[in-house]
Nucleic acid binder design. Structure first.
Lengths: 146, 146
DNA sequence: TATTGTTATACTCTATAACTATA
DNA sequence: TATAGTTATAGAGTATAACAATA
């Protein structure tokens, strides 16, 4: 039993609307951020999983290869990732975080973060715990099991 | 205590990545859907709160007026909303769901929904309960307190 | 011939700035 | 002059299709 709160709509519908709306707000909070949300997501995966090819990164992020091409190009331009040749396959390359990229991911502070941190600070411990569990479940659902 | 799972990253960071990634997956699941996620969100608000002006709808959805102009135009074109003159102010108009729009919101079935329903069906009851609570918290955080 | 990646192109979502119409 | 809304324009995010290079 999920509880008695506003159950006219299905769980799928409610979760979907919540995610769409929070995503919208998060993307709006990027006044001083040096990378976009999409770029940050790719950097996070590189931090978590280590250097990999563009194709592998596209697969982990669940986007098509052309989309990842653009993300990597922007990050390389900004100096947050670098590429080196694949040791055995001339078609591929290995993308890895630079020191600046690692610093950025570790620092993890931005206008975006500040906005969300403030919202989270207004919640109770129990609510934050629920969100922490939900984040894990959602990321797993979105195909991020690694 | 949020639990021992992967706590190197802050809650804000984990929640943000989860939302960005699920949003991406949801937007990809729209093969047979007749409206976009953004349009569906606006329809849901009209269903929940009743007829209102474009400005009110923009405020409730937390987007700028020009963004809502486009959403309303698309929904009107598709026959899911209609407009009537504001009774006292010639600048404004009242946007309301048509019968087709109401049917669409109530039906609430789409390829998107099917994909998410399938993912949700793979979870445990406890996990679904967590997501239900999280959806409520997230929507509140995103400014959807009405 | 199959695979990896890129380029070309297009659509959605959203914003800011400038404009129009009405108050 | 202030407000509500629209039009014009631009950038982020993503996709599919076509192409190039390598296996």
């Amino acid at each position: 039993m999920p509880g008695p709160e506003g159950n006219e709509r299905s769980l799928a519908s409610r979760l979907r609307l919540a995610v769409v709306r929070l995503n919208r707000r998060l993307r709006a909070q990027r006044t001083t951020a040096s990378v976009t949300l999409t770029q940050y997501s790719a950097l996070s995966t590189l931090k978590k999983c280590g250097p990999m090819t563009p194709g592998e990164l596209a697969a982990k992020e669940v986007v098509q290869p052309p989309s990842m091409t653009r993300v990597i190009a922007a990050l390389e331009e900004a100096g947050y990732v670098s590429r080196r040749p694949h040791p055995t396959d001339g078609r591929q390359s290995i993308v890895e975080l630079t020191e600046a990229g690692l610093t950025l991911v570790l620092a993890d502070i931005s206008a975006r973060e500040a906005w969300l941190d403030k919202r989270l600070a207004e919640l109770s411990d129990a609510e934050r715990g629920t969100l922490a569990e939900a984040a894990e479940i959602i990321d797993r659902m979105a195909g991020h099991t690694d």
